[in-house]
Amino acid sequence: MPPKPPSAADLLHLHGQSLSKGDPISPDLTMASMFHLPGLPGGEHFYGRAGTPTWDVLESALSHLEGAPTLVFPSGMGAISAALFSVLKSGDRILLPSDGYYATRRLAEGPLASLGVATDLRPTTGFAEGRFDGYRLVFIETPSNPGLDLCDIAEIAGQVRAAGGISVVDNTTMTCFGQRPLDLGADILVAADTKAPGGHSDLLMGHLSTRDDALLDAARTWRTLSGGIPGPFEAWLLHRSLETLEVRFDRMCTTAGHLSERLAEHPAVSQIRYPGLPSDPGHALATRQMSRFGFMIGLWLETEEKAEAFINDCPLLRPATSFGGVHSSAERRARWGDDVPAAFVRLSVGCEPLEELWSALEAALG
């Protein structure tokens, strides 16, 4: 059985447990760069780059959801950068998925390479087949974005630890309600809260979680010294959105499950990827390590032109390059250079009613 998801009910009342009579239910939005600081500093807030009360409330909520101390960042790539730059040094070697999010590879092959960090690539489906000796850090992404291939987090994290390395898992596509990488043995979890946690396509945020105090301190120091910090209003917005994440994620995953079955039978779809389908090559692993199968569907249409027409002609699809919003969205990932066929479509299922969404998708496919 996969690890148990966090309590959404406890999250909704987490902040309320600390309130006094007359306090607002909603957390305060503290717009401050300086704080009153007579005498010597002693653990309180002193400067906005190091911490704010609004961050505190958000990080408390995310720590509850991830079951581990958590730091917030201004984007998912901000969290990934902290995970990499806070632990790596010249001469280190890292391993990345060759079919994962392209920006992570570009970060490694550009800025990190210029600092003397070497990078190897390995496909997600064969990630556990090679050895992990000699790697300071191994970066895991499952399901991979955009191809939705899976790899075994527990197996890989155990092997990486035995080899003396650090395992980092990007859990953006699944959220804490769909997959629990830290419970499966990963050292660090990173995620882009721009996606489903934010959910309304109106903010950029990310977070890093770890149960290792040394890794947490290193990431916190990196955040403070690099200046890679979120704004207080974005932090406040994300906290607001987290309170409905479980409800939205449940709706999105349930709808995606029904749509995947229908799309798999549609004559215009030549191939489909969705971990919840028994026919999917990752289904057996998904049932072991994922509590939900996600809201992302990969589908192949006949031609690039038909893929573009499907995306652009469907009134209930937003042609956009992100995912996880309340509005269903889709794009041809090949246009960004991902190693997928030109007619491959990444479909992110939103919160529209199932039958209305299916009618619109069916008409666009036809």
Rank of each mutant, 00 (worst) to 15 (best):
G337H: 11
C253Y: 01
T104M: 15
G324I: 03
F295Y: 14
N312A: 09
E234T: 10
V138T: 10
L317S: 05
V349W: 07
D99Q: 07
D28I: 08
W236Q: 08
A103P: 07
P281L: 11
S90T: 10
D250W: 08
T303G: 12
P53D: 04
K89V: 12
A68E: 03
P353D: 11
L184P: 02
A162F: 04
G227Y: 07
V57A: 10
A50F: 15
W222M: 07
L215Y: 00
A320R: 04
S26D: 14
A83V: 02
D280H: 14
G257L: 07
G185R: 06
S260M: 01
A82K: 03
V72G: 03
A61Q: 14
R131P: 06
I140N: 00
D120L: 04
E362I: 01
S33W: 11
T172G: 06
R292S: 10
T221Y: 06
L107E: 04
L182M: 02
R105W: 14
F35P: 00
S359N: 14
G100F: 00
M77T: 11
T173H: 09
S260H: 05
P315W: 09
G130V: 05
R106F: 04
G165T: 06
G22Q: 02
K306N: 12
L354G: 03
A32H: 10
A196E: 09
I156H: 00
L115Q: 11
A108N: 02
T303V: 15
R248H: 06
P341M: 09
S86F: 01
L37P: 06
T303C: 14
G325E: 05
S260Q: 03
L150R: 02
F139Y: 15
G100N: 06
I94N: 04
E302S: 12
E155S: 15
G298A: 03
S90R: 12
L245K: 03
W222Y: 15
R223D: 01
D149Y: 05
E261G: 10
Q271N: 14
K195Q: 11
M252A: 10
P41F: 10
D187Y: 04
D120T: 07
A309I: 08
P74C: 08
L277Y: 11
E44R: 13
K21S: 15
P281M: 12
T244L: 13
T175W: 02
H258W: 12
H266N: 06
T52D: 05
W55R: 15
P181V: 00
E305A: 15
R93I: 12
P2T: 13
L354A: 09
G158C: 07
S98Y: 05
A284F: 08
